[in-house]
Nucleic acid binder design. Structure first.
Length: 318
DNA sequence: AAACAGGTGCTAA
DNA sequence: TTAGCACCTGTT
């Protein structure tokens, strides 16, 4: 049974930048035959809110997200439209209701983030960011499922995006539950914990196989309790995540940013290190620790959004 | 064909 | 405390 749901966000949304910038790995561009007015649409899986309906897919649902106001946004010069919408198609299964999907989508897309104010603030802080943001207004930090996010970024170490996405997809297909639209949800830690490292190696994880296994084990046993992280200070949560093998500063920061919505982190990978070196250190090389300090002190509580824009900016070569 | 990719863990100074 | 290196696997 298919259903349409629409959500309203505070400030702009750029679906393409948001879903393809590398913070999430499972969204695929889709054609949307029934609605030619919707310019860009994507197929993916989002977590349902705790306390809401549980389905066979273990608290997840697939959906097709599309935006109708993207063209208008691009065409406008400085006029700030306060509200933007994203439309969803979902296949309702079990006791899932449109309202459940609406709530889940609002959270996933961080509907409360005050993008107009924050984009303005970051732009005023720094001409580099001003240029970056001008191109991709509406790039949003998502609020993903912590476990899926953790597993995905463990797989990202010394790896390429298409590879990461392929392995995550394979894990979902092999071990996950159908979530609609012919997609499966990412399998919970308990399910991965039943498999040995060899299984993950066979799926293309490479040397990260034992990292993934260690993560599944520690999370399933609650040695690292992903729910408890929500109540911790960012620094404590970061430390807790790093108890898992294969989780260092970069992966921990990505999880804190993309799943726990801690905007006061600044994940540093090779691209960001390069960007910080170029823009803020006159081309002199910087350690990842120094780049991180620079980002945190410059951008403070908006460091996460600053990082996303810098990353997008340098990756697209601008 | 050799090099390298969205890091991390281990070892040697 | 830190620099240097190995690590799967797919692509260029």
């Amino acid at each position: 049974m298919a259903s349409a749901v629409e959500i309203e966000l505070r400030g702009p949304v750029n679906l393409e930048a948001t879903l393809e910038c590398g913070q999430a790995f499972r969204w695929r561009r889709a054609t949307f035959a029934g609605r030619p007015d919707l310019s860009v649409s994507y197929l993916g899986v989002i977590p349902l809110c705790p306390g809401g309906a549980r389905t066979a897919a273990q608290g997840k649902t697939a959906c097709r997200a599309a935006q109708s106001q993207f063209a208008a946004l691009v065409g406008q010069s400085e006029k700030v439209t306060d509200r933007f919408t994203v439309a969803f198609d979902v296949t309702l299964r079990g006791c899932l209701s449109p309202e459940d999907v609406r709530r889940a989508a609002l959270r996933y897309f961080s509907s409360e983030d005050d993008l107009p104010a924050w984009e303005r603030e970051l732009s005023n802080m720094d001409p580099v960011l001003a240029a970056a943001i001008a191109g991709v207004s509406g790039l949003r930090v998502l609020q993903q499922d912590p476990w899926e996010c953790l597993a995905s970024f463990i797989l990202s170490a010394r790896n390429r995006v298409p590879n990461i996405a392929a392995v995550v997809d394979r894990l979902a297909e092999r071990l996950g539950h159908p979530a609609g639209f012919d997609l499966c949800g990412f399998p919970p830690p308990e399910v991965l914990a039943r498999r040995g490292a060899a299984f993950f190696r066979g799926l293309g994880c490479g040397f990260r196989d034992r990292y993934l296994r260690d993560a599944a084990e520690k999370v399933a046993s609650r040695e690292v309790d992903l729910d408890l992280l929500r109540g911790m200070l960012t620094g404590e949560a970061r430390e807790a995540l790093q108890k898992i093998a294969g989780v260092g500063p970069k992966v921990a920061d990505c999880v804190l940013l993309f799943a726990y919505h801690r905007l006061d982190v600044f994940p540093v990978d090779v691209w960001i290190a390069r960007a910080v070196s170029t823009f803020y250190f006159g081309g002199r090389s910087v350690t990842t620790a120094a780049a991180r300090e620079e980002g945190l002190s410059r951008f403070g509580s908006l460091a996460g959004y600053a990082q996303e824009h810098l990353f997008h900016h340098v990756r697209r070569g601008n």
